Amino acid sequence: MNFIYLLGKFLFFIYFKTFNRLTIVGKDNIPVDKGVLLCSNHISNFDPPLVGVATPRKVRFMAKAELFSNPIMKWLMNALGTFPVKRGLNDKQALRNGINILNNGEVLGFFPEGTRSKTGKLGSGLAGAGFFALRSDAVVVPCAIVGSYKPFKKIIIIFGKPVNFKEYSEKMSAKDATAIIMEQISGLLESSERNI
């Protein structure tokens, strides 16, 4: 992790601990020695820094290509290990970048819904998560963000057990793989409602 990433992680940790009483559950479910596709529900623009703070390893994310048009933002995004994706298009370069990150043993943070949920409820997952799960050597770690980012409201982030898609049929479609990932995230959300 470089200085910019570590500084951002430290500052956001202080912020989330102070204003949202951050609680992290299941951090030990994140493997330390292999590629990880970290798939989370998406409720706010604060989700990427929260996932980064809660994960012991450096997490890389895709971000919409428009954010890279400003030179200062481009420098910051690159310093944080973020890479651009052209939304609404079949961006083959972004897909290759994601696969390379995972096959290099790094962590790729991913929001299968593709956009923030306006209701806070888990939406439908897009095929991209399943594509990365099936085309890479990484395991999938489901993640659930529970609570509110409003000041002094509690935020809980829960990491589930890793899922290895190598154990599934080679004929599985990306859509079906995403459905399994979404079931895992949904299960974490339901469990949190019962126990918190």
Results as ranks from 00 to 15, higher is better:
G123Q: 14
I43A: 08
R194N: 10
G26K: 09
L189E: 09
E66P: 09
P162H: 01
K166N: 10
W75F: 14
N45A: 09
G120C: 08
N97R: 15
A144I: 03
P84F: 12
N70F: 14
E193D: 03
M1G: 07
A179R: 15
P49S: 13
G98Q: 12
K17Y: 03
A79H: 15
F3W: 08
P112R: 15
F83H: 07
A179H: 13
F16V: 04
G98H: 14
I43N: 02
P162F: 00
L80W: 14
T18G: 10
L95V: 15
F3D: 02
F132D: 02
V163M: 01
N97W: 12
F13N: 08
A127C: 00
M73K: 11
A144C: 04
P162W: 01
A127T: 06
L80A: 13
K175N: 13
T115I: 09
F159K: 02
K121C: 01
R87D: 03
I4P: 01
L134H: 02
E106T: 06
S191P: 00
K154L: 04
D47N: 02
I156K: 14
R116E: 13
Y168E: 11
D47L: 01
S186T: 07
A79V: 13
L7T: 04
E190K: 08
E113M: 07
G52L: 12
K34R: 13
N104R: 13
V59G: 00
G114I: 09
D33V: 04
V163R: 01
P49H: 10
S169A: 06
A179N: 12
R60Y: 09
M73C: 10
N41E: 05
E183S: 13
F13A: 10
K121E: 05
T23H: 05
E170L: 03
P71Y: 15
K153G: 10
N2Y: 02
G147N: 08
R57P: 00
L22Q: 06
N29T: 00
D176N: 10
S186Q: 13
R116H: 12
A138K: 08
V141G: 02
K64S: 06
A138M: 06
I156Q: 11
P48K: 05
Y168V: 11
I43D: 04
N29K: 06
I155W: 01
I30R: 07
L67N: 02
G128E: 06
P162G: 02
L76D: 10
T82G: 01
E193G: 03
H42M: 00
F16K: 00
